[in-house]
Lab assay of single mutants.
Amino acid sequence: MTYRVRIENADGEVVTIEISADELREKGLTLEELLPPNARIVEVEEVEP
């Protein structure tokens, strides 16, 4: 499974990243732990691999 994640950074700019569930598991991280300081998740969407 892959996630498309929209993130708002500290400057108010919204960027989109895609990350797979396998990648998260391998790194032992959650989506929140990948965020840079002062950023927030705006939207998470599951996409087909």
Rank of each mutant, 00 (worst) to 15 (best):
M1V: 12
T2K: 14
T2C: 11
Y3C: 05
Y3E: 00
R4E: 01
R4L: 09
R4A: 02
V5H: 00
V5W: 02
V5D: 00
V5N: 00
R6D: 02
R6K: 15
R6E: 03
R6L: 11
I7S: 01
E8F: 11
E8L: 15
E8M: 15
E8H: 05
E8Y: 13
N9C: 13
N9L: 15
A10H: 08
A10M: 12
D11N: 12
D11R: 09
G12K: 04
G12Y: 03
G12W: 01
E13F: 12
E13S: 15
E13P: 02
V14S: 07
V14Y: 13
V14P: 03
V14D: 04
V15F: 15
V15L: 12
V15Q: 11
T16P: 01
T16D: 06
I17Q: 02
I17L: 12
I17N: 00
I17V: 09
I17S: 01
E18W: 15
E18T: 12
I19R: 00
I19C: 03
I19H: 01
I19Q: 00
S20N: 08
S20P: 07
A21I: 09
D22M: 13
D22C: 11
E23L: 13
E23P: 01
L24A: 02
L24M: 12
L24H: 01
L24N: 01
R25Y: 09
R25D: 06
R25G: 05
R25I: 11
E26C: 12
E26N: 12
E26P: 02
E26Y: 11
K27L: 10
G28F: 04
L29R: 07
L29E: 02
T30C: 08
T30S: 10
T30Y: 04
L31W: 06
L31C: 05
E32I: 11
E33Q: 14
E33V: 04
P36H: 04
P36R: 03
P37I: 08
N38Q: 06
N38L: 07
N38H: 10
N38D: 12
N38E: 07
A39Q: 04
R40S: 06
I41W: 05
I41P: 01
I41S: 02
V42P: 01
E43L: 14
E43V: 07
E43R: 08
V44Y: 06
V44R: 02
E45G: 04
E46P: 06
E46D: 04
V47M: 10
V47A: 04
V47T: 05
E48I: 14
P49E: 11
P49M: 13
P49I: 14
P49H: 13
P49A: 14
